[in-house]
C-alpha cells in the first residue's frame, strides 16, 4: 500500500478513437459483466421464465379439458408451448429495460465516461447478452415442451425457421427495451411498468383461447394483437395445431411477424442512438 510497485504500463496510449476491434472487445468485456450480474442476481430472469411455464401448466392441466378446441388435452398442451415461448420472449423486455436503466443511472457510468472505451459498446453488450439469454431460454423451453408432450411436427427446417422467427421477434423487443431503459427514470420503474403492460397483452391474444370464444368487440383486438400473430406464426412453423381462425392476421402470421419486428427495429433504433448520444455528452 505504501509504495506503488506495479509495473508501469504508460508506454503508448491506446488507439484514440476506438475502432471496430476495440468496440468489439469492449462489447465482450461488458457482456461478460452483464452475464455475471445475471448469475449473481437471477431473480428477474427466473421470474420471467417461470411465470409463463406456470401459466402453461395451469392452462394445460387444470383447464385443459374444457379449453381444448379439439377436446384433446395433449393437443392443447402442444398448442400452448409456442405461446409459452412467446410470453417468455415478451417478458424479457423488462430485463433489457432495467439493465439499461441500471447501467445509465449507476455511478459506474461516470467511470465509463472517463475511459478510452467505445460508448456504444454498452448498448451492444446489452443486446448481445439479452440475445444469448434468449437462445438459452428458447432451448430450455423447448425442453420443457418436449416433457409436456409437444413435438416439432415440421422437421428440422421448420423448427429452425420457428426459432429464427422467435429470435428476430426477441431482437426487436431488445431494441425497444433499450430505448425504454434509456427513457425510464430508474431500473425499478422499468420492470414495474413492463409486467402490468405485458401481462394483459399476452392474455388478450389467441395464445390460450380462440378469438371466437371472446365477445364480438374483443375478438378483433385479440386477432390483431401482435402477440397473436407471433404465436400463430410459431405454431405454423413448428407444424403445431393452431386455434381456429380465419382472420387476415392469422392467415398471414409469419409475414406479419417478420414485418412487425423489422418495423419496430427501424422505428426504435434512431431515437435510441440519439438519446444515448445525449447521455454521453
Amino acid at each position: 500500500m505504501n509504495t506503488v510497485t506495479a509495473a508501469p504500463v504508460r508506454a503508448e496510449h491506446p488507439a484514440l478513437r476506438p475502432g471496430p476491434a476495440k468496440t468489439w472487445s469492449d462489447t465482450l468485456t461488458l457482456a461478460r459483466r452483464n452475464l455475471r450480474h445475471m448469475a449473481r442476481e437471477p431473480f428477474e430472469p427466473v421470474i420471467a421464465l417461470s411465470m409463463p411455464v406456470l401459466m402453461v401448466l395451469l392452462f394445460g392441466y387444470v383447464f385443459g379439458g374444457v379449453m381444448s378446441p379439439t377436446g384433446d388435452e395433449t393437443d392443447y398442451r402442444a398448442m400452448l408451448v409456442p405461446a409459452m415461448i412467446v410470453m417468455v420472449m415478451f417478458y424479457g423486455i423488462a430485463g433489457t429495460a432495467s439493465g439499461v436503466a441500471r447501467d445509465t443511472s449507476l455511478s459506474v457510468m461516470s467511470r465509463f465516461r472517463t475511459l478510452p472505451m467505445s460508448p456504444a459498446a454498452l448498448l451492444w453488450a446489452r443486446v448481445l447478452t439479452d440475445m444469448l439469454r434468449a437462445v438459452a431460454e428458447v432451448a430450455l423451453l423447448l425442453g420443457v415442451g418436449l416433457l409436456l408432450g409437444w413435438r416439432p411436427e415440421s422437421g428440422a427446417a421448420g423448427a429452425a425457421a420457428a426459432v429464427g422467427l422467435l429470435l428476430l421477434f426477441r431482437l426487436s423487443l431488445v431494441c425497444a427495451g433499450v430505448l425504454l431503459g434509456l427513457v425510464m427514470p430508474g431500473p425499478d420503474t422499468a420492470s414495474m411498468l413492463v409486467y402490468p403492460l405485458a401481462f394483459p397483452l399476452t392474455m388478450l391474444s389467441t395464445s390460450f383461447v380462440p378469438a371466437q370464444a371472446m365477445p364480438d368487440w374483443l375478438a378483433p383486438v385479440a386477432e390483431w394483437n401482435p402477440v397473436s400473430s407471433v404465436v400463430t406464426a410459431t405454431r405454423e412453423l413448428f407444424g403445431n395445431p393452431s386455434l381456429p381462425s380465419d382472420s387476415w392476421p392469422a392467415e398471414h402470421a409469419v409475414l406479419l411477424t417478420v414485418g412487425l419486428s423489422l418495423v419496430l427495429i427501424v422505428l426504435v433504433v434512431p431515437p435510441t442512438l440519439r438519446r444515448f448520444a445525449r447521455l454521453n455528452r
Binding site: H13, L30, P116
Partner: peptide
C-alpha cells in the same frame, strides 16, 4: 487516455469482485 478519476462516491461495480472490477476496467482501458 491520460487521466484517472476517483469521485466522492466509489464508482465500482458492486456485483463484481474487486479483481473482476480491476480486470474489467483494465480491459476497457
Amino acid at each position: 487516455a491520460r487521466i484517472g478519476l476517483t469521485g466522492q462516491y466509489a464508482s465500482v461495480d458492486e456485483l463484481l469482485t474487486g479483481r473482476e472490477n480491476l480486470e474489467m476496467f483494465a480491459r476497457l482501458h
